[in-house]
Amino acid sequence: MLYINCPHCGMRSQNEFSYGGDATVKRPVLNKEVSDQEWDDFVYNRKSLRGKHLELWQHISGCRQWIKVERDTATHEIFRTFKADEEVA
């Protein structure tokens, strides 16, 4: 069971969180023409990386905030966590 550092609450066990997918995907802005390819990339196409992956988790049984977690998909090592509005350098 992962041990995730919620930037709002501190170290919490994985069972307080739910997984939310790739955090690098950006939703196309509203009311703008979007090509089929662009939309498919947003809705469906994911890389399924091995290694460092920036992903979303929601602290559903805690502060209910969505957070970003930088995790190694192979070793489960967690490097850094960020608030939803924090820029990841």
Partner: peptide, 17 residues
């Protein structure tokens, strides 16, 4: 009910803060 709340929170916190 639970999914809709998470859905709204997702858009409010990440997409349209």
């Amino acid at each position: 009910a639970a999914n809709v709340l998470s859905h709204l929170e997702y858009y409010l916190q990440l997409v349209w803060p």
